[in-house]
Design a protein around this nucleic acid. Structure first.
Lengths: 150, 150
DNA sequence: CCGGATTGGTTGCGATCACAACTATACGGA
DNA sequence: TCCGTATAGTTGTGATCGCAACCAATCCGG
């Protein structure tokens, strides 16, 4: 390991601000989607499905992409299913498989909320950053992500 | 608001990698402290107290710094109290106030775990970044943090 | 010095989510 | 074909945490 046991002041500053600010940022984004009856978890689920072919995704792929356990996804689906934003579609070929499919109602909701959510991301984060900082965050987390892949 | 409704590709890349990688990173750090019987929440609580004068902190200040609600902190204290890492000390002057005070046992644990935790932060995050990226993350989250202050 | 407002902290309750155990389906080698 | 294994998803249980309601102690205006 290259480094000493401790982080130098700049590393410590980056680490601490990243950790504490991330929590605050998430709560603020949560506040901005709540008026639509959504949690950030719901929003991310809808957004993820909306980008898949036919606006449907296998449950287990969805769980992986959302960083949820299988059971976590089952429980989260309860909410979006009962609101009829997502429909459950059983695969005919492999009957173990279920798809989560965005309904028209879900799609309409997402079209309404997405611009507002993205405006929040801008207002709370992106608009405060220089282009270089945006790029640095992109490249930094890309490397961190790759290193985490095992 | 300066921007259009959507994020441009670099902004979107930064945003998405930041969001998803942060979850993975937290889980990996969680894994690294678990062998010591700690959660990251416990660790951050101990670390926060350890830096305060006399290694004690008022409950409500601790809750604010940890981004926990009052009740959330009460519950989290249950764990560290029963492990005797932290002691509860009632303030004599203002009898509403309780302090969370690091015990010798808690201090010894923290001295053992801190280098290992910080090594994890290095290995999983800092060591993959250039100095410029570390600085950019520091300055970026500093600005985001300031903008979030109500 | 008294009564209302404020502050500090806990408790009841509900939401979220992970782990382990379970069911059901599909696959693959003998 | 058949059985062992792997894969997809759900359910029981327990941990974490926030909100609302609550109690206790302090502060403050009159």
């Amino acid at each position: 390991m290259a480094g000493p046991k401790w982080l130098d002041p700049e590393e410590m500053k980056a680490w601490r601000l990243y950790i504490t600010t991330s929590v605050d940022l998430m709560k603020a984004l949560e506040d901005d989607v709540r008026p639509f009856g959504l949690t950030m978890g719901d929003y991310q689920l809808l957004a993820m499905i909306s980008e898949a072919p036919d606006r449907r995704l296998r449950m287990c792929d969805l769980a992986d992409q959302l960083r949820l356990s299988r059971s976590g996804l089952t429980r989260r689906m309860d909410g979006v299913l009962s609101n009829a934003w997502v429909a459950r579609v059983q695969d005919q070929a492999d009957r173990r498989v279920a798809y989560a499919e965005l309904t028209t109602k879900g799609w309409n909701l997402l079209r309404k909320v997405a611009p507002i959510h993205l405006a929040s991301v801008r207002r709370l984060m992106i608009d405060h950053l220089t282009r270089a900082e945006v790029k640095a965050i992109g490249s930094a987390f890309e490397k961190i992500s790759k290193a985490l892949q095992p």
